[in-house]
């Protein structure tokens, strides 16, 4: 009888196969009783990171709240692809009001639940990075500052994808968007500060802030469930690659999300009351080029008219994140 090695990890990933875990350790999505809060049949693009992130996040929130969940949604891709009447994908009570007011609408829902004595009903608000870091930022900060009992989830795909891929304050430097074209001496988005909303959320001293990616879905579920066990204002920013906006292959969504984390471009951490409590360590540190090259939005940095100095500046950003958050594992490479 020949030796048959046991595969603990799924091919090409570092994720332990679900079958090998005890029932209570398995993912929400692995459970046949999952709520399918955002049901099949919606109109997201193939490989949409946001659809995937929303499905995992909202199902996890539903699991933790025993199905007693109401969602407020900002205008954006998620709202548009999931809802046109009468084909709403949402299997939970769901409201869309405006682009910039989802946090405030959620505050209103939470207040209504409080006066109705329905402390069992929990509220999530969700939006893309444009609806969160730009136009909805005032309402978001207000909701944080009052510590309203709302979990806000930002699906960060680094731009206004619904309107045709324009720059947001979450767009990385050098990235091509429709409003930061790859022309002139410094092609693509400017090297500014951008807006680091997880850190700004932490500055509000709210109970919980976390980042996650669609490459680590167990981590994402864990963070949503943890957030749902808390009260007050909570914020989770989920990194969700956008094949259309980034010019990436649909099958690379998970890979790009993982590379964003493994390069240090997107630090994955959690914080309570303004202090970082844990970071997801980089398992195999990779150079920034590996993350940039599969994306057409960075194509102008390579090839005939390459911009190695710009690539080096992006690498410096990743390295700074690694230092700042301590992203390298002990003895890691």
């Amino acid at each position: 009888m020949s030796f048959q090695p046991v595969k603990f990890y799924q091919t090409g990933t570092l994720t332990v196969g679900n079958r090998l875990l005890a029932q209570d350790e398995r993912s929400v999505q692995a459970n046949q009783m999952r709520s399918n809060s955002i049901n099949s049949g919606h109109r997201a693009c193939q490989g949409c990171g946001e659809a995937l992130g929303a499905r995992y996040a909202i199902d996890a929130a539903m699991a933790e709240s025993n199905g007693q969940l109401i969602a407020a949604n900002a205008t954006g891709c998620l709202e548009v692809f999931s809802t046109p009447y009468p084909e709403s994908s949402w299997q939970i009570p769901w409201i869309h009001s405006l682009f910039g007011n989802a946090p405030a609408v959620a505050t209103g829902i939470a207040a209504a639940m409080k006066v109705k004595g329905r402390n069992d009903v929990r509220v999530v608000a969700q939006g893309g990075d444009g609806g969160t870091t730009d136009i909805g930022f005032g309402c978001l900060s207000g909701m944080f500052e009052r510590n309203d009992d709302v979990l806000y989830i930002c699906y960060d795909n680094e731009g206004y994808m619904n309107t045709g891929v324009q720059r947001s304050s979450a767009t990385p430097p050098a990235a091509r968007t429709a409003t930061t074209m790859p022309v002139g001496p410094e092609p693509g988005n400017v090297f500014g500060q951008g807006k680091n909303v997880p850190e700004i959320a932490m500055a509000h001293n709210i109970p919980y802030v976390a980042t996650a990616t669609v490459a680590d879905l167990r981590d994402l579920e864990y963070k949503v469930r943890k957030a749902m066990r808390m009260r007050g204002a909570r914020y989770i920013q989920i990194f969700v690659p956008c094949p259309l906006g980034w010019g990436a292959a649909s099958h690379d969504t998970i890979r790009l999300a993982r590379l964003a984390k493994e390069t240090g471009m997107f630090p994955v951490f959690e914080a309570e009351h303004g202090e970082v409590t844990s970071v997801l360590k980089i398992r195999n540190k990779v150079a920034i080029e590996e993350y940039l090259k599969p994306q057409k939005r960075f194509a102008h940095l390579f090839g005939k008219h390459a911009h190695p100095e710009t690539v080096a500046r992006l690498q410096a950003i990743a390295d700074r994140n690694i230092r700042k958050y301590g992203l390298l594992a002990e003895g890691g490479n």
């Binding site: 409201i95 009001s97 007011n101 209103g108 829902i109």
Partner: peptide
């Protein structure tokens, strides 16, 4: 934090039956 939020909170609370 603003009148925009005032009306938006009222939208949420009214839609939730308050």
């Amino acid at each position: 934090e603003s009148e925009f939020a005032a009306m938006s909170v009222a939208i949420g609370s009214s839609a939730a039956g308050a």
